[in-house]
Structure formats: C-alpha cells, structure tokens
Design a binder for these strands. Structure first.
Lengths: 141, 141
DNA sequence: ACTTTAATGAGAATGAATCTCAACTGCACA
DNA sequence: TGTGCAGTTGAGATTCATTCTCATTAAAGT
C-alpha cells in the first residue's frame, strides 16, 4: 500500500493534478480489499467511513487510477464496468462461468508471449491485454 | 447466406420460436455486409429498406442470433455493445487502437490451443474465446 | 493568509438497453 | 381457406450506469 500511494502521488504530480482528500480516500478504498470491483461497490464501501464522497467524484477518479496504471478495466458484469488491480498483480486471464458468474483466474505468461509476437507482426504496441473465455466452470457443467 | 438462413430457421424451430418477418429482416441485415456492428447500425440499415422494424425488436432479436451461434458479442465501443459474425469466420483476436479505434484482427490458433490447456487444468469448458489487447496501431504510435 | 485555479457534491441530463401492453401475426388444425 | 391462440411486435415509457453542470470549496504556490 505504501508503494501504490507513492506511485499515485507521483502520477498526479506529473499531470499537475491536485492531491485532494477525495482522491486519497478513493484510492485507499480501492486498495483496501477488492480484487474486482465496480463504482457502486466503491461508493458503498467509502460511505461507511466517510460521508460526502459523491459518486460523480468516484466516476471522475477511477479513470485516473487506470491511467496511473494501478488498476485496469476488466470485464463488464451486470452491465456495469468493473475494474481490477494491476499493480503488484501478475497479468492473468479470466475464465468466466456463464451459469454462476464465477471468475477463475489463470496463468498468462506463455499466452502473452504468443500475443506479443502477433502484435509485432502488425506493428501494434500493446498497452493492455484483454484475455479470457466464457464457458462453464467445473461445478456448473 | 443460404446456410446461415437455414441454421437460423432450424434454431428458431428447435426453440419453438416463430419465423416472423422482422426476424428474417434483421438476420438478412446482419449478413448483408457488417463484420462488426451495433444495434444502432442495424436499425439505420434496416430503416432504409423496411419501415417499421423497431429498435426494441432488434434488441430482442440480436440475442437470438447470438444464441444460434451466428454472431457473438465482441468488444464494446463508444459504450455500445458490438457484435461480430462467427459463422464462417475463423476465430481471431482483436488489437484495438486506443487512439483511432481501428480494430486489427490477427491469427488465433496457437493462442487458442494454449488457452485450452489452461482451461483443462481448471476443468473449465470454454464456449467462447474473448481475446484481444488494447494499444496503439502502427499509424497512431 | 491570499489568490488563483482546479476539484467537489448534488442533482440534472444523457443514452443504451429493457420493459409494458395493446394490437398483430405465424402456424397448427379444422 | 378460415379460425383461434400463443408468441411477437411497435411505440413509447422506464430503468439505470455514466456523464455533465454549476455553484461552492479547497489545494498549493506566493
């Protein structure tokens, strides 16, 4: 959590953005526990400790966290955008169960390597992988 | 187009769904040209030839086309769901340019194989791959 | 402290997707 | 070919995530 905070500070400074209370509260909430979360989750979680952080501010701050590389947009779920940590987390791919909604994370490195070579062929510079598959988990088959 | 139509017919029959005029019009529009499309594209395209196919009906019909295996949900773009053909199209992965929005399609088989083995480990039955990466295309770098 | 300028909160606005319901239409059967 | 009925449709209303507006507030350099 120490490192994340510093990275975030540096990012804001580098963009001439102010280190405001809401921005800190939101980033702390993000790193408190969630692996995957959406804006609503965040809002509810923050409301418990701090009054007066509005949804609008969360919607405005999340893209900053994405841009800073601390989180990234992940799958959509129940027609909400959902996000996941990237800092300190290995890249991984998602298997999403179509029946129970469970998300299984799996290794990644070999896949990424393969995709890198494909991207190279197209002269495409990858900034973010988006890899997964839908189907049925072992419980639901 | 012959085959698609038959598959669609069979699918509807197998589900005890009626082969109505709007359902035919929509499926014909889908297979007329688009590689990638959203509901709005479809609506505009259909309006040119046929009056009176409502958006609601398109929203109701697209999931049928998905379920029948003729199309699948693809990336989201401009906060709209977008779809792509699957019937008669090799699986592929998408490189999406974050600047100009261009979608580059690239090979797939090796990646799919790799992912299959990962899925096997988790005892997960894949029904649909979802593979891509965001970044910058050669023109936008 | 003061000033400037960006950031915030609250609620209004937007817009894709879904729902409602009266009118309509495939389609099975006579 | 006509009849009945359950599934479908069109049009507009509704929902709900996300974005916008704007008056108020608060960082941060001086």
């Amino acid at each position: 959590m120490k490192k994340e905070k510093e990275l975030y500070r540096d990012f804001l400074r580098s963009k001439n953005l102010k280190l405001t209370k809401p921005r800190l509260i939101i980033m702390e909430a993000v790193f408190e526990n969630h692996e995957h979360f959406n804006v609503d989750d965040l809002y509810e979680q923050i409301k418990k400790k701090h009054k007066n952080v509005s949804r609008a501010t969360i919607y405005r701050t999340v893209p900053l966290l994405v841009e800073s590389g601390l989180i990234k947009q992940s799958l959509r779920c129940e027609s909400k955008d959902i996000y996941e940590h990237t800092y300190g987390h290995e890249n991984h791919l998602h298997f999403i169960c179509e029946k129970c909604g469970k998300i299984i994370e799996s290794g990644f490195n070999d896949v990424a390597e393969l995709i890198d070579t494909l991207a190279e062929k197209e002269n495409f510079k990858i900034s973010e992988y988006n890899l997964g598959a839908r189907g049925l988990c072992s419980d639901c088959q």
